[in-house]
């Protein structure tokens, strides 16, 4: 179980972004997390993955604190893969940072072997995102946090990527937290949708934008 227990987080001089927040994802479970922007979903993702340390509370993975300085069992995938690849490395080397995926893993993600000998700027976002996934789909990964993982992909690639990821997660008992604006997508993929960040009630009408006083 990946657990956040009464976690609070803020940046240097902001109000609390997360305050006394409890959250959990079990092994093999797919949890959907919808909600409007600016509510702290991505901050939660970074805290759960150990990229940010909470000021209060703790994050534990299978009962232990997240390890440091080694391959983390909690891996985070962002919306923009081009920001997570070293622009001066060939993709073969970037992928090998995580582990060395076998041919079957590449095939399942529809990755052409030729892409590996290219540089990030020579591939499209959808192609890069699949390589970023191949990098983290290692046997050591226990939990995957997908922060708008397929928001910039066309629907066909989105369906293909989720098919591969869900299949891998099921086979390896990996828990997934899927953060997305797209409720239809979450209804498709998630076992459970967490409403912590979802707005209560009907959607508000268009309002006039004012500068904050």
């Amino acid at each position: 179980m990946l657990k956040a227990e009464s976690v609070s987080f803020c940046y240097d001089n902001t109000p609390w972004i997360l305050e006394g927040f409890d959250f959990g994802v079990g092994p093999g479970e797919v949890v959907g997390l919808p909600g409007p922007s600016g509510q702290g979903k991505s901050t939660l993702a970074k805290v759960l993955a150990g990229h940010l340390a909470p000021q209060q509370g703790a994050v534990t993975c299978d009962g232990r604190p997240l390890p440091e300085g080694v391959f983390s069992p909690v891996q985070l995938i962002f919306q923009h893969p081009e920001l997570t690849m070293n622009p001066r490395w060939k993709l073969r080397d970037s992928v090998a940072e995580g582990h060395t995926p076998d041919a079957a893993a590449f095939k399942r993600l529809n990755i052409e072997p030729a892409w590996l000998s290219r540089y990030p700027h020579e591939l499209s976002g959808g192609e890069l995102q699949r390589l970023a996934l191949a990098r983290v789909m290692s046997p050591q990964t226990r939990y995957l946090i997908a922060d708008e993982m397929t928001a910039m992909l066309d629907p066909n690639t989105q369906a293909l990527v989720w098919d591969a990821v869900l299949h891998w997660a099921k086979a390896n008992g990996v828990g997934i937290l899927a953060i997305s604006h797209d409720r239809h997508l979450l209804d498709r993929i998630a076992h459970r949708v967490d409403e912590s960040f979802a707005p209560p009630g009907p959607t508000p009408p268009e309002t006039t934008c004012r500068a904050a006083a």
């Binding site: 529809n110 052409e112 192609e127 629907p155 293909l160």
Partner: peptide, 21 residues
């Protein structure tokens, strides 16, 4: 048709492969 059928609110099916480089 493949794009439309791949939407989560439609079939969520996909066509394997990639567009030509």
């Amino acid at each position: 048709r493949a794009l439309w059928n791949a939407l989560p609110q439609q079939g969520f099916g996909f066509v394997p492969g990639n567009q030509p480089m």
